[in-house]
Design a binder for these strands. Structure first.
Lengths: 227, 227
DNA sequence: TTTACTTGCGGCACTCAGTGCCATAGCTTG
DNA sequence: CAAGCTATGGCACTGAGTGCCGCAAGTAAA
């Protein structure tokens, strides 16, 4: 008995205690004791208390990096979509574990922050890759790369969270669809009006008839007044 | 002498020491001692060591919240642009302080994470506001809100970082331009083929007279043509 | 002037995360 | 059997953050 590797036993103990008492009410000593191990062993297996919950972010980052690296200029966007799908699948494969983690990050601010910081790393990876792909060190390309990277990870997170909440039965299909929407966004012809001070017109959908809106529009144009 | 309030003296001491020895090599005791104050006083003024560097995030969040709150459905996008500009201006007003903070967050991983987590809070605010504005609890609207919020803060951060690095002489103009690009992105006709519908509302800044724009507007409403 | 109340500060003791060092038990390889 | 490697436990230490108590100075009320 107790033949499970220390890493696993520690993780099990940690999640059990987090469920019972909450994250902040659980000390590393508690975890080690419950696992029947020493405190030192805990820190040898996990860099920090938070790390028990987010074990393989580094591996995931490497996964993305690899997938992006094995692409040519013409397949860059496919690589991005693939990488996103890879990450999503990783979480889906975790199944219940991912959902327990989500429950924790939803409750504990420190963990939520940590999660967001990790997402930031993903976003950075995508940003650099996309900027590279866009080539031009133009300021405009740089901004577009930033926007696109942000949209890519936002799409991923949106679908992931839906799945975590049990709102999605086919997350892979959803993420593919979401990525299509993202790519459509950035392939839209007019989206890069370039410099030159022309007028930019922005349209959104509403339920109202346009003529009913015209007065507000006028005021909006003239002085940004309220409506 | 030493008539400056404790808060200020502590911040001065902290930044000085961070510059001299680096963030991790500076303890809270060091800071308090340099400021000629007690350790207790430090924690009374700042919740944590990191807080000395990011003092008024809460105030900034409230600022955004307020600006977004004072808007109607038709001026929602103007409010978003305004809020973004507000945040940017806050940092620009800080001047050198903001740049010293940037130097620190660039070097120290813990601070970078903290910064990213803060940005996440901004993004959440925008996401909720935009989702609310889009109305429909549709899954499609929800995704679009998420994408748009991500793009909005990405645009802001892009311009802010440019300014922090000294690459921008007129950040306000740049952020306005970037926001135009973001809004244009999401107004692109093809991107939301969604179920049919209503008419289109238009928000924009322009130098032109609105009447000169009306024909384009009508076309935009009818078939989503550009500019 | 004396009393009472508030505000800002210092000191101290405590918890807990995280680091570093040393010792030891077990297992493998010569 | 000896040498070496690996996984573990114990222990002491630093440093962040909390809580409590006490003190001084200023202010208001008696």
């Amino acid at each position: 008995m107790s033949k499970l590797p220390a890493r696993i036993r520690l993780a099990d103990a940690a999640f059990a205690l987090f469920d019972e008492r909450g994250y902040e009410q659980t000390t590393v000593d508690d975890i080690a004791e419950r696992a029947g191990l020493g405190r030192t062993t805990f820190f040898r297996n996990y860099r920090s208390k938070e790390d028990v919950i987010f074990p393989d972010h580094d591996r995931l980052l490497a996964l993305i990096r690899d997938r992006l690296a094995t692409s040519s200029h013409s397949t860059a966007l496919v690589a991005v979509s693939d990488a996103v799908r890879l990450v999503l699948l990783h979480y889906v494969d975790e199944g219940d574990l991912a959902r327990r983690r989500y429950a924790l990050t939803s409750k504990v601010a420190a963990l939520r922050d940590r999660e967001i910081a990790s997402v930031g790393r993903y976003q950075r990876l995508f940003r650099e890759f996309i900027a590279d792909w866009m080539g031009g060190p133009t300021e405009s390309a740089s901004l577009r790369a930033e926007l696109m990277a942000a949209a890519v990870v936002a799409a991923h997170n949106h679908v992931l969270r839906r799945w975590l909440r049990g709102e999605s039965s086919d997350p892979v299909a959803e993420v593919d669809e979401a990525m299509r929407e993202v790519l459509a966004l950035f392939s839209a012809p007019g989206s890069s009006p370039g410099p030159g001070g022309g007028t930019t017109v922005v349209a959104f959908r509403t339920g109202q008839d346009i003529d009913a809106l015209l007065p507000s529009l006028r005021r909006l144009v003239e002085d940004g007044a309220e409506h």
